[in-house]
């Protein structure tokens, strides 16, 4: 009976393709980052780039720091069921609860993906070297004391260390290693992260940049209103306001 109804449920999904992950189907846990302004910004950026993405025909897509699974699920839906048939999705998070929650979110949308608990892409970097066509990252970017970076649980979802760059600076060389010759990286950053420096650094490695979407988010403290994001045709970045500071 349960098998029957779950099959029916999947049929249901096929009949009504969602454009992005449905919040009501996104699983949650007190220690896991819930989809927030930055998650929506990243998914909206992917949506606005949908035509490019479809044309790009990625074969391997990776998310680093998947949290609830909202972004990787949405990416799979944006690429479409048919297209997705030929796409391999892999997502990582350093928080074990996040990976369990992401599994539930993916299942609820009928999306297959590989999930690994790891630091950035440690353990995957050998086999995935130069294979990844699209990487998506909504990193912990809030400037914090360095000690908070990589703490257990929900703290790891926002704590970015000095200038909010600690985890970003760990991710960039990994992205460069994993991305294929036609690889793209979509990433959320804050103005405080010094995105132009990020672009410059990546330009030296041969990446171009483009801002896909910019939003200023008033965080009630008046400080750090996000703005620019940068991205390269090979490397779509984005930046926005500091929505995580409360």
């Amino acid at each position: 009976m349960s098998r029957h109804s779950s099959l029916e449920f999947r049929e249901d999904i096929r009949k009504m393709p969602y454009r992005t992950a449905q919040i009501r189907l996104v699983a949650s846990h007190p220690e896991v980052y819930e989809p927030c302004d930055d998650s929506f910004l990243l998914v909206d950026a992917l949506l606005s780039d949908q035509a490019n993405l479809l044309h790009h025909q990625p074969r391997v897509c990776v998310e680093v720091g998947c949290g609830s699974g909202y972004v990787i699920t949405s990416l799979a839906l944006i690429l479409g069921k048919q297209e997705s048939g030929g796409v391999y999705y892999m997502a990582t998070d350093i928080n074990p609860h996040a990976v369990s929650v992401a599994r539930e979110t993916l299942n609820a949308h009928g999306i297959d993906a590989d999930l690994v608990i790891t630091d950035v892409a440690s353990g995957l970097d050998k086999r995935l070297e130069k294979l990844v066509d699209v990487m998506v990252v909504n990193p912990p970017y809030v400037p914090t004391p360095e000690e908070e970076v990589g703490c257990d649980g929900i703290t790891a979802s926002w704590a970015g260390g000095e200038d909010g760059r600690s985890v970003i600076d760990k991710i960039l060389p990994v992205a460069d290693k994993l991305l294929s010759d036609r690889g793209w990286l979509y990433m959320v950053t804050l103005t405080a992260n010094n995105p132009s420096e990020i672009c410059l650094q990546m330009r030296r490695k041969g990446y171009a940049s483009r801002i896909v979407l910019q939003r200023s988010t008033e965080d009630g403290q008046g400080s750090m209103i996000g703005s620019l994001l940068s991205q390269f045709p090979r490397f779509p970045f984005l930046t926005h306001g500091d929505s995580k500071k409360n």
């Binding site: 892999m90 590989d114 690994v116 790891t118 353990g123 995957l124 050998k126 086999r127 995935l128």
Partner: peptide
């Protein structure tokens, strides 16, 4: 964990050179 995942993973311990499979 499907075997596809296994196929993408290597031992990531510092100093290990023969970490796969």
């Amino acid at each position: 964990m499907r075997l596809l995942t296994h196929n993408m993973l290597s031992s990531n311990i510092k100093g290990v050179t023969q970490g796969f499979p």
